[in-house]
């Protein structure tokens, strides 16, 4: 198939960016979206032009590196997939495709389609863990039975890949779904109880410090999330946050 691509080019953090037009032809519908970009870049290199920079690594939908806004949708038109799992059979021959980076003040563009998501790391550093040191004497793993339903809920929350699509698609640039996923994972597990109150307060505080917006419950994040993380977890985090804020014990 032949395609016209309008791609965001930006030299560095401080430069002004703009959309550039490129044509590609002979693309197989079995190719992935990123493989189509590989073809485009090979073409640019052969012309002596600098190829388009984009984040990508595992190319199987789990590392969370890829982060493209395709025709105005985070990770493109297919549901519940990352950009790397999107295949060209989702597009029509002759189509024009707009490709842009995530847009959020808390995730500035570094170059072309690459953004800086270190704000996510800093939120996790503020409390996204259980304070347990490595030790050969931790209690036996089966000494603490956990109801399957809770374990499954914790797993579904923990499936977050930290790609940032929730932020990119939110009109408020809110990171609530991302933060809620981590808070909820530990909230559903007994291991997370001891530090639960401090954790949710610290993580929400850091989220606000990073400049993410507030949640207005539009639910766009849930729709674009490649791992189908439910906004029920935001409700869970809100309950955790309220309980922590109004708790008298600490």
């Amino acid at each position: 198939m032949d395609l016209t691509l309008k791609v965001w080019r930006q030299k560095n953090r401080n430069a002004q960016g703009a959309l550039e037009k490129y044509n590609v032809s002979g693309i197989s519908e079995n190719a992935s979206f990123l493989e189509m970009l590989d073809v485009m870049n090979e073409q640019l290199i052969n012309e002596g032009t600098e190829p388009v920079a984009f984040d990508h690594d595992c190319r199987e939908g789990i590392c969370g590196s890829c982060s493209l806004y395709i025709n105005g949708e985070a990770h493109g038109p297919a549901k519940n997939v990352t950009t790397c799992q999107l295949h060209m059979r989702m597009f029509k021959d002759g189509e024009t495709i707009y490709i842009e980076p995530w847009r959020s003040a808390a995730m500035p563009v570094i170059k072309d389609l690459i953004v800086d998501r270190s704000s996510f790391d800093r939120i996790q550093q503020s409390g996204g863990f259980v304070s347990v040191n490595t030790s050969g004497n931790t209690q036996d793993a089966n000494a603490l039975p956990i109801p399957k339903m809770n374990a499954d809920k914790a797993f579904d929350a923990a499936a977050c890949i930290g790609c940032g699509a929730c932020v990119a698609t939110c009109k408020n640039s809110s990171a609530m779904l991302f933060v809620a996923a981590k808070v909820s994972q530990f909230a559903y597990l007994p291991q997370g109880q001891v530090e639960a109150k401090q954790r949710v307060k610290n993580m929400v505080q850091q989220m606000d410090n990073e400049g993410f917006g507030n949640c207005t419950n539009t639910g766009a994040c849930e729709i674009e999330c490649p791992k189908s993380i439910s906004i029920e977890y935001i409700a869970k985090m809100n309950r955790e946050f309220l309980a922590a804020t109004f708790s008298t014990s600490e």
């Binding site: 259980v130 209690q139 793993a141 109801p147 399957k148």
Partner: peptide
């Protein structure tokens, strides 16, 4: 020898391994 410790350590960190209905791994 250390393989068992790994599972204990990961469970303590809150790694959500698959479980049976009785709550065990």
């Amino acid at each position: 020898e250390v393989s068992g410790n790994i599972i204990d350590q990961c469970v303590a960190q809150g790694v959500p391994f698959g479980r049976e209905y009785g709550g065990l791994l």
